[in-house]
């Protein structure tokens, strides 16, 4: 009967992973990825591995989304700066 729980957790992980692929915007993807980390934590706990669940929790639901969000922010700011610099160069040229 404990297999039911394992099957449910596996289904949840599969559904969340599919959703993470289907969402296209990286900032929104980070949110789905953190939910994926949470469902993986559940799966590991159901499989009687709480130590793995703890490390998955730290990495999957906290660190990875934070890294993605920070790099998206930096990339956006850089492209904004580039656009601004090109505009200024055009204005200076004319």
């Amino acid at each position: 009967m404990a297999d039911v729980l394992i099957a449910l957790a596996l289904l949840l992980v599969a559904a969340t992973a599919t959703a993470a692929v289907a969402v296209r915007d990286p900032a929104r993807q980070a949110l789905v990825l953190s939910v994926l980390g949470l469902t993986l934590t559940l799966l590991f706990t159901v499989l009687q591995a709480p130590d793995v669940a703890l490390s998955q929790l730290a990495v999957g639901s906290a660190l990875t989304p934070l890294l993605i969000l920070l790099s998206v922010r930096k990339a956006r700011r850089r492209s904004l700066d580039q656009v601004r610099a090109e505009k200024e160069a055009e204005e200076g040229g004319t």
């Binding site: 039911v4 729980l5 449910l8 957790a9 949840l12 559904a15 969340t16 959703a19 289907a22 969402v23 949110l31 789905v32 939910v35 469902t39 559940l42």
Partner: peptide, 18 residues
């Protein structure tokens, strides 16, 4: 109870997150 909460709770959460 854990299985019910897992499906009935996390399913809608997944939908709203996506």
């Amino acid at each position: 109870a854990a299985a019910v909460l897992m499906v009935a709770g996390l399913g809608p959460v997944l939908w709203c997150v996506a």
